[in-house]
Simulated assay, not measured.
Amino acid sequence: MKYYLGLDVGGTNLAAGIVDENCNLLHKESIPAGAGRSVEEITSDMAKVSKSVVKHLGLPMSKISFWGIGMPSYVNPQTGLLVHANCFGWKNLDIYSYLQKHSSLPIYIENDANCAALGEVLAGAGKGYHDVLMLTLGTGLGGGIILNKKIYAGADMMGAELGHTKLCYHGSSCTCGQLGCAEAYCSATALIRQAKEALQGNESSVMYELCGKNPEQLNAKMVVDAYKMGDQVAQNVFLQYVDYLSCAMSSFIVIFRPEIIILGGGVSNVGDTLLLPLKKKVMENTYAADVIGVPEIRLAECGNDAGIIGAAMLEKYGMDRKKNGVS
């Protein structure tokens, strides 16, 4: 049996796990990421939690031939530098030099959204499919594209940033600094912003009560709860959000024509409350949908494990990207 080591790096947690050759997650551990600390401290903890899962299973490190890491960024294949991990404030960072201080294993770094998409294809909702698109509806709008069961990220391996495709010309500000990105309309953060805007002058809305009459405490669940309770303001907000998301998805569909689209992240946890109106809107907004149909839309199944599984299996299913920053 072969074993693979994967690490999913986020702004909140560092989650590591051991995956076998059948893509089963055998053991995982998670520790706080501690964003705001030094690069040395965070990369040391990345190695520490990764080594801990290996030790837990009683495996010698010699049994692990590879360390796969999902990061909220890309590594530039020409320079070997981590481009921009916004949650840590890292930009053009020589990430390999820090990690190599703690491990002699070959290191493979990939964008975390791509890892999550690969994990779902190998062990979750995308199992059995070859061409899959995944969107993560969380703090941002993560996107991953799997073509022929391999990660696709363009000629320079730094593409597939679906959340930063333009949805509205000169539209709302995005955290990336651009205007009108899909992320600024389709993320959980966007849903909350839209609800706060709608609450202005609408204090009679159920949402106002659910957030304790303090809109700054409003979250996505409160918006959905008010929507399900029949609150008109919440219904207007949520259905507009669904419309935004369907428009973004319709563009991705006509470009890639995936077999299925998988939805993950916090907003997807509401299940059919999102899926039913979304499927209807995708049919309405997608070119030639009445003739050729649209891909199946399915909820993610692996949860937070998808990123670990995908990272662990990068050596087998990832792109031909540099390892340890060396060709």
Rank of each mutant, 00 (worst) to 15 (best):
H170Y: 02
V326C: 13
K196I: 04
R257Q: 13
N219M: 03
Q194E: 14
C181F: 07
C186S: 15
I255H: 00
I64Q: 10
D8G: 13
M71C: 10
E29Q: 15
V19W: 02
I146V: 15
E315A: 05
A190R: 00
T12N: 08
N22H: 14
K28R: 12
V223Y: 02
E41F: 06
K101P: 07
I261N: 06
A47G: 03
E197I: 11
N219V: 10
V121T: 15
V291P: 01
A116I: 03
E110K: 02
G68R: 03
N92Q: 15
E110R: 03
K280Q: 15
V19D: 03
G201S: 05
A220T: 04
G126S: 03
H164E: 03
M313R: 10
G17Q: 00
Q200P: 01
S187H: 08
G138R: 02
A182F: 08
G58I: 14
C211M: 11
N269A: 07
Y241C: 11
V121G: 10
I297H: 03
R37S: 11
F66D: 15
A113Q: 02
A33W: 01
H170P: 00
S103P: 00
G318P: 04
F66T: 15
K2P: 11
P106W: 01
L59T: 12
A85C: 04
G36V: 05
N304K: 08
C181W: 07
L7E: 01
V254C: 09
A184D: 09
T175N: 14
A85E: 00
I262V: 12
N24P: 00
I255S: 05
V326H: 13
P295F: 12
I192E: 07
A300E: 00
K28P: 00
P258F: 05
S204G: 08
L14R: 06
I145Y: 02
I151L: 14
Y3W: 12
K2F: 12
D290R: 01
G293H: 05
M229W: 02
G11W: 00
Y208K: 08
K149A: 12
T79G: 09
C174L: 10
L81E: 13
P106L: 01
D272V: 05
K279S: 11
E183W: 08
A195P: 06
A226F: 01
L167D: 01
